[in-house]
């Protein structure tokens, strides 16, 4: 057992050190990094971040990432919540068939959808547009968000709406004013998980956006790495870019880690 505990702490230390190392390296100069892989920055070079944000296009990309991730996650939750509520409350053959249809989407890898969605959006002139990308993210979010929220709504006792309806509230009012406030926790979790997924999503972002003003962070990072192969590696700036993509995840996780872990794990076990 003691060996096991030591091994776990070593793993934990390795994870923490990797993040720390990435951060420290992002503050160092390129040639210095190549000479000594592990070392403290002699004088922190925040210039790496300025270079990344400005020349690497990470500032615009970060803005695009925030915008597409927030808007698409929000729309996905707004669309999925009433649907999941109806599916959770009504027990009929249609209802379980629909639940199955949504659940089936969980098993479809993105590579199946990437060509059709590209062709479809190209016809609508929505490629290389953040609107098009956000639209795709809303569609991709449907199976998981409906699945997650259906599980969540069936955990809320129906007594609440029964009381509201007996008091004369219409179905929409009962849902918006009585159920949604109680379900706030689940809705926030659904939004968070979707935001994280969209923030890191790479395949569709690479395929659907390419001009400097439209790309999201993963695309900007991939393009920056590719460009470095020709201009000579500037590891400092590259790791500054990595930190920009990592920072919101670290912030969210330290702020709402328990909620994120529960959302991603407890729902699975049901």
């Amino acid at each position: 057992m003691r060996i096991g505990t030591t091994a776990v702490w070593l793993l934990v230390a390795a994870d923490l050190l990797l993040v720390l190392w990435i951060f420290l390296t992002s503050l160092r100069g390129g040639s210095d990094i190549l000479k000594h892989g592990f070392s403290l920055p002699t004088s922190p070079r925040f210039g790496n971040y300025a270079t990344a944000l400005d020349q690497g296009g990470f500032a615009q990309a970060a803005l695009n990432s925030v915008l597409t991730a927030v808007v698409s996650s929000l729309v996905a939750v707004v669309l999925a919540a009433p649907c999941a509520y109806a599916l959770a409350r009504r027990r009929s053959r249609t209802s379980s068939a629909l639940t199955m249809t949504f659940a089936m989407g969980l098993g479809v890898p993105g590579q199946v959808l990437v060509v059709p969605l590209f062709v479809g959006l190209a016809k609508l002139d929505l490629t290389d547009s953040d609107l098009g990308l956000a639209l795709v993210y809303v569609g991709l979010a449907m199976p998981f968000t409906v699945f997650l929220l259906t599980g969540f709504f069936s955990g809320i006792p129906a007594v609440l709406e029964e009381a509201a309806v007996l008091d004369g509230a219409g179905p929409l009012r009962a849902f918006v004013q009585v159920v949604l406030p109680v379900a706030r926790g689940g809705l926030i979790t659904a939004f968070l998980l979707q935001f994280i997924t969209n923030w890191n999503e790479t395949l569709f972002a690479i395929v659907l956006t390419n001009s400097q003003s439209k790309v999201t962070l993963p695309v900007a990072l991939a393009e920056f790495v590719a460009a470095q192969q020709f201009n000579g590696l500037d590891y400092g700036t590259m790791f500054a870019g990595v930190c920009i993509i990592l920072a919101p995840m670290i912030a969210l996780f330290s702020w709402m880690g328990t909620r994120i872990i529960q959302g991603m794990t407890v729902g699975i076990g049901k």
Partner: peptide, 28 residues
């Protein structure tokens, strides 16, 4: 009431899912 509101509640999500998910699988 639940029976009456079932389709209005599910339709928007279902429509998005059909257009942006199921149809592309068929198209593929």
């Amino acid at each position: 009431q639940r029976r009456r509101t079932f389709w209005p509640f599910t339709a928007p999500a279902l429509a998005v899912y059909l257009v942006l998910f199921i149809a592309p699988v068929g198209y593929a």
